[in-house]
Design a protein around this nucleic acid. Structure first.
Length: 269
DNA sequence: ATCGGGACCTGCTTGC
DNA sequence: TGCAAGCAGGTCCCGA
């Protein structure tokens, strides 16, 4: 489910309700996530959430003695709820605060919850991540430099978290369409000018999607259980064999390293 | 170093 | 109607 805009939407929804709140209890009903939820997660109990930040698709809850690290995987969501509300199937844990609870719901269990002490950016999961796409260091020159000598398709390059974080299968396709670049083009063969266009497209797509509350395909909801609206503006994702809205040619669908990709053979070269 | 593919899961849709 | 296959928003880890 969640790419950067969905994770950011979740973060923004949670902040006003969670920041400054004391963790009263953590109830684990299903610890078998991508990695088992560790026992030391209980270190958070009795401490206050000082802030919530996002790194790529990870959410980091800062406490005085460490961080709670969440990842929503492919199907996860975090929702605020009343502490007594009935547990749904695939609700795996609840964090209790004074007047509300926070539930992790994740049918496929590709997500995680970990407890980290010390500098989270030095943690093995975070330390080799690339730059944030909405920050300065990410631009066309950076992408161009990173791509030299690389033969992977450009779509695979921009979905690689060591190159840039937060770009998943939906927004990679949308950004390549916006930039007019064929997703199968070898990364090392693309000019600086075109990478500048691509970097701009990635920033624009992600920003607009955040403004729309993310993309809801089947089940994404923000911290308050509300869907996003960006799916109404998807130009290529999920539209294989339908006409391009820009030129009316039929959109083509291919598979790249196991993921489906839709593009316009006329608009994207 | 780089690359592709398998692995981890459940649920939904499609086709026989 | 039932069943199997294939697909889905992520990413770590392995062998080539």
């Amino acid at each position: 489910m969640p790419e950067l805009p969905e994770v950011e939407t979740t973060r923004r929804g949670l902040i006003p309700h969670i920041e400054g709140q004391e963790v009263l209890r953590i109830e684990i009903r299903e610890p078998r996530l991508r990695w088992p939820i560790p026992e030391n997660i209980q270190e958070a109990v009795g401490e206050r959430i000082e802030s919530i930040r996002r790194r790529g698709k990870y959410l980091l809850f800062k406490l005085p003695n460490g961080h709670l690290l969440f990842h929503l995987g492919m199907s996860g969501s975090l929702r605020l709820c009343s502490k007594e509300s009935p547990w749904r199937k695939h609700d795996h844990l609840q964090i209790d605060f004074a007047s509300l609870g926070l539930r992790l719901h994740d049918p496929r269990r590709f997500g995680c919850l970990l407890w980290m002490e010390g500098d989270p950016d030095q943690h093995s999961l975070l330390k080799s991540l690339g730059p944030e796409p909405l920050e300065r260091e990410f631009n066309g020159r950076y992408l161009h430099a990173q791509s030299r000598g690389r033969k992977v398709p450009v779509k695979t390059l921009i979905m690689n978290g060591q190159i840039v974080v937060g770009v998943g299968n939906i927004y990679a396709q949308e950004a390549l369409f916006m930039a007019g670049i064929h997703p199968g083009r070898s990364a090392g063969s693309i000019s600086l000018t075109r990478y500048e266009k691509l970097a701009d497209a990635i920033r624009t797509i992600l920003s607009v999607a955040i403004g729309q509350g993310g993309t809801t395909l089947r089940d994404f909801v923000n911290g308050h259980g509300e869907p996003g609206y960006f799916q109404q503006q998807l130009e290529v994702y999920g539209r294989g064999h339908q006409p391009c809205r820009r030129c009316a040619h039929l959109l083509r669908e291919i598979r790249q390293s196991g993921r489906s990709t839709v593009y316009c053979p006329h608009c994207q070269r």
